[in-house]
Write a protein that binds this DNA or RNA. Structure first.
Lengths: 196, 196, 196, 196
DNA sequence: AATGAATGAGTATTCATTCAT
DNA sequence: TATGAATGAATACTCATTCAT
């Protein structure tokens, strides 16, 4: 199977993500994906049972990628103590990539409200995000931090000027003043105030 | 057979919202809306130039309704001082209504990323929301409160147990500790009035 | 009937001709005609039983106008002896008017092949044209002159440079050499060769 | 059910011509063509991008066929010297075929006035016709002969009794008396060979 | 007398999916 | 194993015509 073009399935999935970004799930068709992936139309239903399966695979891959990327950002930041900046939605990266990600996240949410399979995917992703946060911050703040990150992520899409990481860092500081928002990496490292 | 039906346009718009909730913008069709509204198919393009116009009218109405409802909640709460509870997404109301609203909000966001007209609608709505918040809370916290509300609104959709208004109130308190998050309502609770 | 706007029927007919020129019989609709005539849609089926009747009236008027115009041209030319120039399709007049006329003539021919009513209209018009020719030229040449005029009329539409009246005059001269193509206006008038 | 049908495209084009003859371009629909061609409706837009493309293909084929047929008639007649009869619109052939051809020619002219693509087709066809005539007759008469043929072609449609080939031959003789209308054929009358 | 509201039948076109090759 | 040809069901939209007012 797929002896001569082993990456074809994968290319189709990537193409599907691109089409979804461009036109939305509702306008995504076999034809458009096939064209974008550079594969014959008949190839679509050969590699996938139906269109829904293609779309599912695309979102599955997307969620995994986003999840991984968030985790990485937190992990890379931990040793440097720049955690508050790390959890804020990244500013680096071209804006169009950000819009594309937001588009996919929102379309995924919409699917998740309607279809249990997608709901499970989102719940699992959200759980993973909270776990990542909890690994670095204190438990009692996790939920709030999580909501804050989500809210900023969305609002950033619709305002040219979004809260800078610094502003977010400040919010977190306020949110956790008195208690220690950061977990485990105790001692001398503190004084995040210097970084605001 | 009825020759004159002045509310028909409105009924179509409401029907459109229902169909969008049930199936999403992408699967919303003239036929389904007409059926749900109890009007003949030909009536659709008599009252609206095209499907897009129906959908736009639906979202326009929805945004106005949501905006109004948020404003009302804040206004009603102000005198009682229960503002922190008021800004949290309402818990009362049937859960399915909440899901429906979330669905519409998310679909609207998706549209807004792609189409300038919808983007303007969302931006105007968001600005109005922030203005409402700012009318009751101190300016420096508006942005964060706004993001927090948004984040909770979304996360609530995907977790059976969402932060209670109390939890949100607590978060806000933490967030604004030291300063007075509330604007103007001075009196005995005084102290923080100095910082507003 | 039509007490307050007695020319309305006529305005509709003129508007119909304009729409037919712009879009063709096949794309002519009640709506477009009403819009162009500046009358309400309901007015169309008030003044005419159906669309076909509007179109018929339009062509009827057009044929009468063309017939009259040809007759006039011939009559005006007769005394001056410039008949050969007169029967050639007029060169004066804006080109777009010529194209419009050609369009209507051709659409009318098409209708005439299919529908007896239109066929009768065309046959009557053609008979009238031949009668006009015959009134000024000798009978034996009528048929040929008629065909020549028709052919030039059509070819002119598709070639930027069409035979000048002079060229047509020359053709007629050749066609009738030896015999006298012109009726009645005998004698001294001759030597048209000088004008070629 | 047939999975492969290589002549289908062609059958559709022929069916399209038939429908156009029967109902005119304006009333020609996918459905009618599909029905007449014996293919499913979905097949139409599989083989052609849209209805306009079907119609264009039909006229393209028709023009080529007519052009070829005229050329053949002239070529076949040349050796026998019966050229004058040859250029006259053929009388043989069933009358309904003649009407059909006239219908298509006139519809094509109408299209040509409005759409550049069709105009180019007509111009190319007319140029080819004139070239054919010029190959057999002397240059100075080409334009007139061409117009005469066109005029007779059209008038024949509307009069049961049209000029017989003999009448046309006579007209041509008159038209060219003195000069030699025919090019190149035979002996002593030679001279004009220098102009070929 | 005149018209705006309304509609059913019809239009071009799209597309997921099937399946012979 | 892979795919191009094929199609039926569905889509948005148009419009002549009807008729209550």
């Amino acid at each position: 199977m797929r002896r001569f073009d082993p990456q074809r399935r994968d290319r189709i999935i990537e193409a599907a993500l691109e089409v979804i970004v461009d036109l939305g799930v509702g306008r995504t068709t076999h034809r458009l994906i096939a064209e974008r992936a550079g594969v014959p139309l008949g190839s679509m239903t050969y590699h996938f049972n139906n269109l829904e399966e293609v779309i599912w695979s695309a979102f599955e891959k997307f969620a995994a990628r986003m999840q991984q990327s968030f985790e990485d950002r937190l992990r890379r930041a931990a040793p440097t103590g720049d955690l508050v900046r790390a959890i804020a939605p990244p500013v680096e990266g071209d804006r169009s990539q950000q819009q594309a990600d937001a588009l996919l996240v929102l379309e995924l949410y919409v699917l998740a409200i309607r279809h249990p399979v997608y709901r499970r995917l989102v719940e699992q992703w959200m759980a993973s995000t909270r776990a990542s946060i909890e690994r670095h911050f204190s438990t009692q703040h996790t939920e709030v931090i999580d909501a804050l990150v989500e809210g900023f992520f969305i609002h950033r899409v619709f305002s040219g000027s979004v809260p800078s990481p610094d502003a977010i860092a400040h919010a977190l500081q306020m949110l956790t003043k008195g208690t220690d928002p950061l977990r485990s990496i105790s001692g001398p490292r503190a004084k995040p105030s210097s970084s605001s």
